[in-house]
Amino acid sequence: MISVRAAAQRGQADHGWLRSAHTFSFGSYFDPEQTGFSDLLVINDDRVDPGMGFGSHSHRDMEIFSYVLEGELAHKDSIGNGSSIKPGDVQLMSVGAGIVHSEFNASQSDMVHFLQIWIVPSQANLLPRYQQFSIDSLKKRGQLALILSPDGDEQSLVINQDVRVYVGEFDGNEAANLELPTGRYAYVQIVRGSVSLNGELLQGGDGAKIMDEANLKFNNGRGAEVLVFDLRPIIGVSRP
């Protein structure tokens, strides 16, 4: 079963300097039917004006994953990290027992557009950890590349949960299949462009909850970029 949530159905927030589309309930946006899926709690599609950003604030017991689409995001945190995140980079904060951090648009002239994604960890009070790497564009061209996993397979970043996250880009005749282990759930987020998922055409910003599907097939892409989450088969979000 594939249940599509169209981009236009997402919650919208406009803070002037920040414009967000919320796939799941977040902040002042609440939809009782959209409170996460398995361990996937948040997908925020954020656009931040030049020179603006999120000042120092704290989190705990969450795996926070940022994926930049346009521009450059500057990061600082209380465990000594300072970095710049650009398109093609994958950033993961395992905030564990607590991190204070900030994210700002690193440019004074250009918008930064990125996805911020929260995944509930398997345990509480873990040691905070920061990871970042840049994925070779050829690894996601016409195929699905593993970027997050619990065991660091294929040089992916290590996440504290039984979840695997893939990214892929598809155009024209490019196609890829992902076999899901028996009983697993999945969530697909169309980052941009359009692509067919098991024969159904999805557009940028669309998402899909997936249950009882053994195989995911992506084809007929037009400038498409997708994120795929292989998730535990639980209905609600499970807290550690």
Rank of each mutant, 00 (worst) to 15 (best):
Q131T: 08
S156N: 01
S194K: 11
G152M: 01
S20L: 04
S194H: 05
Q123L: 13
I117D: 08
L231Q: 04
Q189C: 05
Q108I: 15
S78T: 09
I79C: 02
N44W: 01
V163P: 07
N125S: 10
D31Y: 01
S83Q: 10
A124S: 07
V90Y: 10
S84N: 11
S137N: 15
T35R: 12
H22S: 12
E200Q: 12
R19Q: 14
R47E: 05
A124K: 07
D162R: 02
S102A: 09
D49I: 13
Q161W: 00
N81M: 10
A8C: 14
V100N: 01
L144P: 07
G168P: 03
I2M: 02
L157C: 03
G53V: 04
L178T: 02
F229P: 03
N219Y: 03
H57E: 07
Q108C: 15
G168D: 09
N220A: 14
I159H: 00
R184W: 01
F26G: 14
V158P: 00
S238G: 03
R222K: 12
I210F: 00
R164A: 08
F37H: 02
S83Y: 05
L227V: 04
P240S: 05
S149R: 06
G168N: 03
D61T: 04
M111Y: 02
S109R: 11
M93I: 11
D39M: 02
A13G: 08
L69N: 03
G223I: 09
